[in-house]
Each structure stands twice: as C-alpha cells, then as structure tokens.
Design a binder for these strands. Structure first.
Lengths: 229, 229
DNA sequence: TTCCTTAGTGTGTGTTCGACACCAATATGG
DNA sequence: CCATATTGGTGTCGAACACACACTAAGGAA
C-alpha cells in the first residue's frame, strides 16, 4: 500500500534511552540489531512513528515491543536531524529518555526476536548510528536536571532507604556526597516520608524505609527547586 | 516529481518562536497566514524541512525567508507531534526558539509576500494551529533557563546599560528585582565589562555602557551557574 | 536655579552550604 | 557469647551567600 507525496519526506523515528539503576551502576538498555545496517551492533530501542500515533505513543509502543517495559517515566529529550545520520536515507529521530528501577519492573531482556540487555553507562559497546551521541545527550540531561528537579525517584523501588537515594545521586552526578548533608537536605525539602518498615535481610544494621511524598514531589517537579548538593 | 514510500509518513516542519526585547516588553514575531487553513490568522514563522537540510538549517532558512532575520541565537525547544494538530494531515513540528535584540537586527517586517509583525507576549492575538502552546513552552523555557544560564544577552544591543540588563531579567521573570543586589551579582560573576562610553541622548544622568566578557559568558553558558536573583 | 529622573553605591542580618567524627544496631564467625 | 565487621544515624560551627533597605550624584528640562 504505497503512499505518494509531492515532496520527499524524511522518515521519522523515535529512539529511547532507558536508564536503570543497579546496585551501584547506572545502566542503559540496548538492543542488538538483527538487520543491516549495523547488523549485530548494539543500538537504542526505537522505531518508526506511525501516522496515527503521537510521538510519545510511538516511544511507548516500541518500548513494549522491544523490551517489554511499560508504564514508565518518559520524557522527550531532543530531536536529531543530521542529514547523514542513517546511511540508507534521511531519518529524523525524536529521542526520549526513560527512567525505571530494575527491581520493580519485570524486564524481559528479549522479545520480538531481538536481543536486549542492560549495560553500565561507564562501559558501553560501540553503538550503531549516532546513538552514542543521543545517549551522551540523555546522560547530560539527567545530570543537569537532577540539580533543579526531583527527578530520578523513578529509578528506585517503591520503598527505599536514604542510602539508596544518595547512591542514586552519586551515580548520576558521578561524585561522592556527604551523608549528613544529603540527609539534611532531602528531609528538609519534605520530599520523602518515613515509613514504619525497615530493611530486611541485610548483614548490618537495617535502615528505615522511606517513600516519596507524592504531593511535595509533584509540586517541586513542576516549579523546580535548587538541589546543589 | 512525486515521492513514494511503503508506509505513510508524517510531514515534518519547523516552527520558530522569535523573542525580541522592546523598551519594556518581551515581544514575539508572528506571521499572518495567507493560505488556508487559518487564513488571515497569526502564526509562528516556520515551514517544511527539506530532505537535504538539517533541522536547524531549515529553521534558519525559514527565518530568513519569512522575516529576514539571520545569524541569530537559535535553540531547539521541543517537538510537537499531536495527531490532530494540523487539520489537513499529520504534521510533526520541531520547535525552535530564537533571541534577537530589536535594535541590532534589521527586521524586515514583511517579506515573501507575508505580513510579519512583533507582538508583546502579554497581549497576543489568537494563534493558528497549536502555536499558542508552542509559544507558552518557549516562554516557560526562557524563564527556566535564565536561572541557570546567562541566556538573554542576545536580546540586548552590543553595548548596554546595567539598567537595560536588569529590565530584561525583570521582563522575562515577570517580577521586580533589587537594583543593588542585581548589579552586585552580575558584576561579581564577571560576565560584563565596563566600557569607557556612556549613554547618549537621555534626559537624565547618563549610565555607563557595558559589554559582555565573551570568555566568561561562553564558559558559564556551558557549565551553567546559579542565578537565583 | 529648580526640579525631575535615573545612576550609582554599602551594610547588616538571617539563611544556607559544606566540612567534619562518633556511637548504635545488627549479622557473622570464631 | 564475645569480637568484629558493616552500615545506620545524628549535630555543630564557620564561611559564603541572599536579601532587605535609602541616600547622594549627575544631567537635562522647564
């Protein structure tokens, strides 16, 4: 069923940078390509935008198809339109980034006959197309955003310890933070609430579990704040 | 010369929100449409992306064609992809925003047989398509960005007074700032340099003219800073 | 020369940032 | 059961910064 237009049109795709938090690493979900070009190389999940779906719908659809991930935090990153970024033809891609916590979501590493896997951002394989550039942009955005928005909670399980939250920030910012100052700051902005529960099955003193205060969280998410920790 | 593809493709356009600074208002450049749909209504400058040009090239080309503006500060804003945003067919648009100073650039209000004009953001006509939404997003971005990047200098002439700079910030942030604290802060970050010149033709004490220190400016532009004034 | 308008300048107070060290609780292993 | 290893949890002090605030200086206009 061919479609004809008066002027040539670039193809339009979405690509998604999915960040996940491991015990001590920031990870990214990659797909091994089973078709040329770049056959066998690793690439970001993504695909063509259908005419009857929005960009975000396309991103969510591709995520489910290729990785099984759904109902996750997703945000538009940037649109990449270099003329030669795909060797076959002109392809413009709208990049999104996603945050998931590796414990909560059931990640089917392989669906759609493709090979999917997590890689630590600090040790990535060579990526197809300009996907390294897209990933760098997403990482930079994450680092920048964390300073003025309470982003990143999506990377943690529902109940978490303050230590986990701190490590999240340390991994994203790539530097160590002072424990006392961190706790002071986080508690002061009232973004988390103590629960009655404590950690289980740890070989040391168990930490209290916290959860976000959704109200404060959403408010700060909108108006921004200053997290120069 | 028709072009045929196996699957239907959305059309791809760029739209540009051009901000300019008047004596006391933040303004936006709009184009009056001479074709349906929305014939006669005002819209953002923009147009189709050609297959052999990048997105930014398309934005700059359309700006020259429709407003005569060139060599200006331009930054990608967001990509809008709602299915029904154009009543004719599926059109995805990559929005950019631009900053110019109204004194420096020779703005041909009308080129390309179209009617172009500046409007204060506080008093806009009804806009075609979803352009009001795009404009709101650009305005929000400008307000947000001004807090952590020395953006906005592009809105001023080459030499300017600190009073002008302050009014720029006041207009963007939409609140009054303390003169002494403002000057203290701006001078402390060494982003501007005093010149030997002073204002001319003013009916009161003439102010010193300043210009940016390009080195500091570019550095802060990259690494960001904190402008919670 | 008087008046009007904007330019230009400094201090003090409260708040926040950032550096820094020790005891508490629990599991493990001898 | 005692020792040890590991992480949890807490407070203070000095420095830097944010913010509120009011008067004199300069120049043109009437």
């Amino acid at each position: 069923m061919p479609h004809t237009y008066q002027f040539a049109r670039p193809a339009l795709t979405v690509d998604i940078v999915v960040f996940g938090l491991d015990e001590d690493d920031l990870q990214v979900m990659l797909i091994q390509r089973d078709l040329p070009p770049f056959e066998g190389e690793w690439a970001l999940p993504g695909g063509f935008v259908h005419v009857e779906e929005t960009l975000e719908e396309a991103a969510r659809r591709e995520l489910v198809e290729e990785t099984g991930l759904k109902d996750i935090y997703l945000e538009q990153l940037y649109t990449f339109g270099a003329v030669e970024r795909d060797p076959r033809e002109r392809v413009v891609t709208v990049a999104y980034y996603a945050l998931v916590n590796l414990e909560g979501h059931d990640v089917q590493a392989s669906t759609d006959a493709r090979n999917a896997a997590w890689f630590p951002v600090s040790d990535l394989p060579k990526l197809a197309f300009d996907h390294q550039q897209i990933l760098d942009a997403a990482h930079a955005r994450l680092r920048g955003k964390v300073r003025y928005q309470p982003i990143g909670f999506e990377l943690l399980p529902d109940r978490f310890t303050l230590r986990q939250l701190q490590r999240l920030y340390e991994v994203i910012l790539d530097r160590e933070l002072d424990k006392r100052n961190f706790r002071k700051k986080v508690l002061a902005m009232e973004i988390v609430k103590e629960t009655n529960e404590i950690e289980k099955d740890v070989a040391h003193r168990a930490a209290k579990l916290y959860r976000f205060d959704k109200r404060t969280y959403d408010r700060l998410m909108k108006q921004g704040f200053n997290f120069e920790i």
